[in-house]
Amino acid sequence: MNEITTTRANHLIDPVMGVWHGEVALYLFLGGLVAGIMVLAGLAMLGKPATERSRAASLMLWAAPVLISVGMFFLWLDLEHPFNAYRFYLVLRASSPMSWGAWILLLIYPVSILLAWVMTPDDVRAHWRQRLSFMPQFDAITEWAERNVRALAILNIVAGVALGIYTGVLLGTMAARPLWNSAVLGPLFLVSGLSTGAAFMLLYRLKDAERVQLGVLDMGFIVAELALLALWFIGMASGGAAARGALAVFFGGPYTAAFWTLVVALGLLAPLAGEWIEHRHGTVPGRVTPILVLIGGFALRWILVYAGQYAGLAEVAMR
């Protein structure tokens, strides 16, 4: 084994890179969650008529603009030069996922708010319409939205998918971080987002029919997520020395325990089992499994953010 010394000791990179922390993990988690909510809401909107929808479900989409704002706030906190944040919006840099992300985030607001408004139960809407009646544009917008509700639903699905994938691609394009550097990360984060989205909804007072439906959907998401995890690992295992070295962080490396217990066992297998049992016995999904899913979803981002920085090309080469 070679003996290596370096005089470099730059905070944030040495001895182990630590540029991104909880804020970013939380942002990625909330981004995925919002993506999930938007897609599911969009699908619901394209699906059955409003009459069959529970009040909770009809209000659900409002969570999107709120949660994304929370997420962006945390992202903003992570910036070393927050007052230069406006710089994100003076350019669109095709090669930079983060640049795309910044613009996608902007898209989320109009799209989700409009649809959320259309989905909102009539009594609430009536109340606000007459309160805001002093500005005619408001009615105009409402009518426009109601006329284009299908388009809006599709837009939400599209924006949601874009958002979900972007949260993964943000990390996935970093060639310097073999653990992140995988095409699977985009889909993986999207599916995980959908799963957390569904779980989030299950926390509210939905109709049994809706719960059962989401439960089944979520099982699908979890299975897909497991498949993508497998793909991701296989990709690394069959990759170069660096990739294999990176994979080691989950097999004996410092993140082994956390990953297998929090993400795989607690966050995926347990809820899958739970949902499956509920399904077999025809019982209505409760709130335990969704909570596990949410924990797992957050753990996935948290662990990935740190493990990815730990397993840089150079670092792996040195170990």
Binding site: V19, D78, R87, F88, A175, A314
Partner: peptide, 14 residues
């Protein structure tokens, strides 16, 4: 520079 640190993460050479 916004200090987003994406470039630090992207640089293989630290």
């Amino acid at each position: 520079c916004s200090g987003c640190k994406a470039c630090i993460a992207a640089c293989p050479y630290g």
